[in-house]
Nucleic acid binder design. Structure first.
Length: 272
DNA sequence: ACTATCCTGAGT
DNA sequence: ACTCAGGATAGT
């Protein structure tokens, strides 16, 4: 579910409301969500610490706490992190951190999310995290970098954009949207993309991510932000979830196919 | 480059 | 009852 804009929306709210507060108790209702520590270790390590800040890299959230410790969180499909002033049970809640003021709740309907206890500085040893490429809307992600990376591979541009080690933060929704705005078909081999198209793609990636962020994320099924509200960006999607509907630009029916096992949406007229 | 896999819930 | 879902990884 959550891609960069959704995770960043959650990060901002959670950091604003939990930084400087102390974790008084930890209730872990589903221990298998924690991948590299026993329930006892997690609870012992996090009880009594102060939340310093919350950062994000790609789709990972990183809760930095006192004592050179961090809690790394990947929300996968349906995870979310909520802050509440007053504890109120929510559907699918799995971990409850009671703070000296309010509480943080990790909730995850499909329970596919992952949490790891990591050092606050240096490498985490978590494979997906340490190998992340630059965020798609960050200055580290440059057009020259994208052009070089595309030239090196002949796999489809959609598969490339979903590869978090190349560019971080794009999932199935923003990938399809970026390719629409760049006028590039998802199945195009990367090495056949022209410099002009690469420029369009570079601009489109930044644009769709920042637009998603401005609209507080995309809610298709069950994304909710840190305060439990839905995003607004679904109203602005051009292709994702619009198969069979007319293209907003040219009126051609939006097509649907499977690419690398993922549902893929595109306009057969606007995208070449 | 595929497929299966971890899960639950919604839609058909 | 069956298929599908916004992610990532391990296996072939």
């Amino acid at each position: 579910m959550p891609e960069l804009p959704e995770v960043e929306t959650i990060r901002q709210y959670v950091e604003q409301h939990s930084a400087g507060k102390t974790i008084e108790t930890v209730r872990l209702l589903l221990p298998r969500l924690v991948k590299n520590a026993s329930p006892e270790t997690l609870i012992r390590t996090l009880t009594g610490v102060t939340i310093e800040n919350v950062s994000r890299k790609g789709k990972y959230l990183f809760l930095h706490v006192s004592g050179n410790t961090g809690l790394l969180i990947h929300l996968r499909m349906t995870g979310s992190l909520l802050y509440q002033e007053q504890y109120e049970p929510v559907r699918g809640e799995q971990i409850i951190f009671s703070l000296n003021e309010g509480c943080l709740i990790y909730r995850d309907i499909r329970t596919l999310g992952c949490l790891w206890l990591v050092p606050a500085q240096g490498a985490t040893g978590i494979s997906g995290y340490d190998t992340l490429g630059p965020d798609g809307n960050s200055p580290a992600f440059t057009e020259a970098y994208l052009r070089d990376a595309l030239a090196k591979t002949k796999r489809s541009v959609k598969t490339f954009l979903l590869d978090q080690t190349r560019v971080a933060g794009l999932g199935n929704i923003y990938t399809d949207e970026a390719l629409f705005h760049a006028h590039i078909l998802p199945q195009r081999p990367c090495c056949q993309i022209s410099p002009a198209e690469c420029h369009q793609l570079y601009e489109a990636i930044g644009m769709v991510l920042n637009q998603g962020l401005r609209h507080g994320g995309t809610t298709i099924r069950n994304f909710i932000n840190g305060s439990g509200k839905e995003g607004e960006n679904q109203k602005f999607l051009c292709v994702y979830g619009r198969e069979g509907l007319p293209c907003r630009t040219c009126g051609t029916v939006i097509a649907y196919t499977k690419l690398g096992g993922r549902g893929t949406h595109y306009c057969p007229h606007c995208q070449k």
